[in-house]
């Protein structure tokens, strides 16, 4: 057998091996006004070397989910299995190797870098904890080089840097511990489009070079279609649709996905064609304290049926590797048939 072939199969096998499995994870917050079900029974897996996209609007629970993976929150119930171990606990209770192995990049670089500490001081923190014996000054320079920043930035304070540069520092900090899994929580949402490209390019190059896996959280579907291998869409704490990126955009199933797609103000005619026949966005996203019964999207759904108001549809595999939780595909429905025509 030629060597090349065996290597490819081995690589493919490694690609399809899940590094992270999330099983029926829930996170409820007790507040004075009631229980907030931020994440309510979410399951998915992320393969080694994959970019797994999580899309959602405010209140969807996407950030809470990412925070549970890195250990900012402890799940109320459910399992988070990382490299074969259940890690559903707070970062403080996790073993040291896990803190090194899973990292996060926050949305807003202005708040994720301490304004009163220089870039060097910020980058030194993870190095001092995890590699105390290495040459720390040298490593800081290497980290800056890795994200394409000049070494003199080390002595600057965050407010002397542009938004994109700050985010690159945040990425360098996340990669300082040499992790294998990184949660990217809206890493470019606070930045201008003209710098977004550079950040994404660096993230993708580093992923390849360092063999990383990403959980990429965003509300930007256009960005998602360009970076993710698979996409999950969340609405009020639940995954409503999950598919491979190509399939997700060519054949969106859930009415919420369609509404979201049709709300995007696109620029080119080709994009316009990709948008589903206009579903006008209507209604408000329900408050976290009074999530509608049944399917939580039903008050905004143009195809709402009686069953939607009482029964929450399960996430079914409607096409190969394409999951959707909607009664439209399990019940015959006139409104939808009309829409399809």
């Amino acid at each position: 057998m030629p060597l090349v072939f065996s290597m490819t199969t081995e690589k493919m096998e490694r690609m399809s091996e899940p590094i992270l499995i999330v099983e029926n994870v829930k996170k409820y917050f007790n507040t004075a006004r009631g229980i907030i079900k931020a994440v309510d029974g979410v399951s998915f897996f992320v393969n080694q070397g994959e970019v797994f996209g999580v899309v959602g609007e405010s209140g969807s629970g996407k950030t809470t989910l990412g925070n549970m993976v890195v250990g900012i929150y402890t799940p109320t119930s459910g399992k988070i299995i990382y490299k074969g171990q259940d890690i559903a606990k707070h970062a403080k209770e996790r073993p040291k190797w896990l803190k090194k192995d899973i990292q996060i990049v926050f949305q807003n670089p202005a708040s994720s870098l301490n304004p009163r500490r220089t870039i060097r001081q910020t980058l030194e923190v993870p190095l001092k904890v995890h590699m105390p014996s290495s040459n720390i000054a040298e490593r800081v320079d290497k980290l800056l080089e890795m994200v394409d920043l000049p070494p003199e930035f080390a002595e600057r304070y965050p407010d002397e840097l542009g938004g994109g540069e700050k985010q690159l520092v945040a990425i360098a900090r996340a990669l300082a511990t040499e992790p294998s899994f990184v949660v990217l929580d809206e890493p470019t949402s606070a930045l201008d489009v003209s710098v977004q490209g550079k950040i994404i390019k660096i993230l993708m190059n580093l992923k390849k070079r360092l063999n990383l896996s990403y959980m990429f959280i965003t509300h930007n579907l256009s960005l998602m279609s360009n970076v993710a291998d698979r996409v999950a869409i969340m609405y009020l704490g639940k995954v409503r649709e999950l598919a491979e990126t190509r399939d997700f955009f060519l054949n969106p199933m859930h009415p919420y996905t369609r509404m979201l797609l049709s709300s995007i103000p696109v620029i080119t005619d080709e994009e316009e064609k990709l948008k589903p026949k206009r579903i006008e966005s209507m209604g408000e996203i329900a408050g976290a304290l009074n999530i509608p019964p049944g399917c939580s999207f039903h008050p905004r759904c143009p195809f709402v049926m009686d069953v939607c108001r009482s029964v929450d549809p399960p996430l079914n595999e409607l096409a190969p590797a394409h999951f959707c939780s909607c009664h439209l595909y399990t019940t015959s429905n006139n409104a939808y048939d009309k829409y399809k025509k």
Binding site: K201, T268, E271
Partner: peptide, 9 residues
């Protein structure tokens, strides 16, 4: 601007 049609960022 990244496009919905997905030709890469």
């Amino acid at each position: 601007v990244p496009k919905l049609t997905g030709e890469g960022v």
